Amino acid sequence: FTDGIGCVLCEEGDFLMVWDGSRSGYVGKAIKGALGSTLVRLKFPNIDTNYAYYFLQSKYIEINTRAKGVGIPHVDPNLLWNYKLPIPPLQEQKTIVSKIEELLSDLENGKQQLLLAQQQLKIYRQSLLKWAFEGKLTSVRTGRDLSQKDGELSEGWKWAKITDIVENNKHSLKAGPFGSSLKKEFYVEKGYKIYGQEQVISDNAFFGDYYIDEEKYQELKSCQIKPFDILISLVGTVGKVLILPANCEKGLINPRLIKITLNKDVYLHKFFKYYFESSYVKNFYGSKAQGTTMDVLNLGIIKTIPFPLPPFVEQQLIVDELESKLTVCDKIDETISQSLQQAETLRQSILKKAFEGKLI
Rank of each mutant, 00 (worst) to 15 (best):
Q57K: 15
R144H: 06
H269E: 03
V313F: 13
L268D: 04
L297E: 04
S105Y: 09
E334F: 15
K331T: 09
S98L: 08
D164G: 14
V319Q: 02
Y280M: 02
Q148Y: 08
K149G: 15
K325I: 05
V328K: 15
P306N: 03
L107M: 07
T65W: 00
T142A: 07
D213R: 02
E155W: 04
S37M: 07
Y51A: 01
Y192V: 01
L79R: 07
Q113L: 15
P77S: 05
P73G: 11
D164Q: 12
T2H: 11
A289F: 04
K84Y: 11
K270T: 00
P245T: 06
L114D: 02
E314K: 10
D295I: 06
S98F: 07
S58G: 14
E323F: 04
S22Q: 10
A132V: 04
W19N: 07
K226A: 15
A160L: 05
L262D: 00
F178D: 02
N168D: 12
A160C: 03
T65C: 01
G300P: 01
K190G: 01
L317Q: 11
K190Y: 04
L146P: 13
L242P: 11
L242W: 03
R141Q: 14
F1P: 12
E62S: 12
Q126M: 13
F178P: 07
G6L: 02
K94E: 02
E334W: 14
N168I: 08
L104D: 00
S139F: 14
K136W: 00
N168F: 14
N254Q: 13
C223G: 06
R23W: 03
P177Y: 06
L115Q: 12
A160I: 02
Y210L: 09
I225M: 12
L257I: 07
D48I: 01
I87K: 04
W131I: 05
A160N: 03
G28C: 10
